Amino acid sequence: MKVIELHHVGFGVNHAQADAMLDFYRNVLALPQDPSRWKIPGIYGSWFNLPNGTQLHILGCEGVSQYAKGPDQDPVSNHFALAVENILAAEQELVEQGIEYFTLDNVASPNLKQLFLRDPAGNLIELHQATARTAGVAVNEQQTGPSANR
């Protein structure tokens, strides 16, 4: 499995906390908000761009999200996301190594396959295709170039 980058860190919080975090990261830390945040049904929140291309994702949800696959399998929980060179090869490696994981397909964006697994300490990790989306860049802009939307 070839990890390309740390893509984002996601914070799963309730709506009031999501609002407070929006104010904090935008006003106190002066981080630019990503205007191209995907509209994920049932998930309230915002994304912030960091100077190195990594993002912070504020994921607002009251209780367990509609995307949970079972106990301890809610992708809206606190997690970090790694972009990998080949998501299908990464999934095959997880299978071969007997690593438990769950998947989401096409939830945040069309053609996006996300794998979620836990490290030995229980931290939730998301894996997705490196070319699925560059942090801070709209999908249609990424695919057609920065001048396409202007």
Rank of each mutant, 00 (worst) to 15 (best):
D23W: 14
H15I: 15
N86S: 04
A138V: 10
V28S: 06
S65I: 02
V64T: 14
Q33M: 13
V137F: 03
V64S: 08
E141L: 13
G98N: 09
L29G: 04
S46F: 11
P75G: 01
A81S: 07
F48D: 00
V9R: 14
N27Q: 14
D23A: 14
F11K: 12
Q114P: 06
E91S: 06
L127G: 00
A132I: 04
N123C: 10
R133H: 12
A81L: 06
A89C: 08
I99H: 09
M21N: 15
Q73E: 10
G136Y: 00
G60Q: 07
S46R: 03
A135D: 10
C61H: 12
L50F: 07
E141Q: 13
N27H: 12
A138T: 04
Q142Y: 02
N106Y: 05
I58Q: 01
A121L: 14
N106S: 07
Q17D: 15
H79W: 10
N111G: 04
G63V: 07
E141R: 12
V13H: 05
A81Q: 08
Q92S: 01
A121P: 14
L104Y: 10
E85N: 05
F11L: 14
A20H: 04
E85C: 05
Q92C: 04
D119M: 07
T54W: 03
N49Y: 05
S77V: 04
L94T: 05
Q114H: 06
G42W: 12
K39M: 15
Q73M: 11
G70C: 07
L112T: 07
K39D: 15
G60E: 00
D119Q: 06
Y101Q: 10
L115Q: 08
R26Q: 11
P71W: 11
K39A: 15
A68C: 06
Q143M: 06
N111R: 11
I58P: 05
A89P: 12
S46Q: 06
D34E: 09
F102R: 00
P41N: 04
Y67G: 01
F116L: 07
I58E: 00
Q66I: 13
P75W: 07
D105W: 15
G45Q: 04
D72M: 14
V95M: 02
I125M: 06
H7F: 09
G12L: 08
C61D: 10
P110I: 00
L59V: 09
I125D: 07
L88G: 02
D23H: 14
S109W: 10
E141V: 15
P75R: 03
Q66S: 08
Q92E: 12
T54D: 07
Q114S: 02
C61A: 09
Y25W: 14
Q114L: 06
T103W: 05
D23N: 14
Q129W: 10
L56G: 01
A89W: 10
V64H: 08
E85I: 04
W38T: 15
F102E: 03
A90D: 07
G10M: 01
G53Q: 02
E93L: 11
D105F: 14
V9I: 15
A81R: 02
E62N: 14
W47Q: 09
S65N: 03
W47L: 09
G45W: 08
G122F: 01
G136T: 06
L29E: 02
I43A: 08
V95N: 08
Q55A: 02
A30P: 13
Q73T: 02
Y25H: 09
W38Q: 15
G63T: 11
L115E: 02
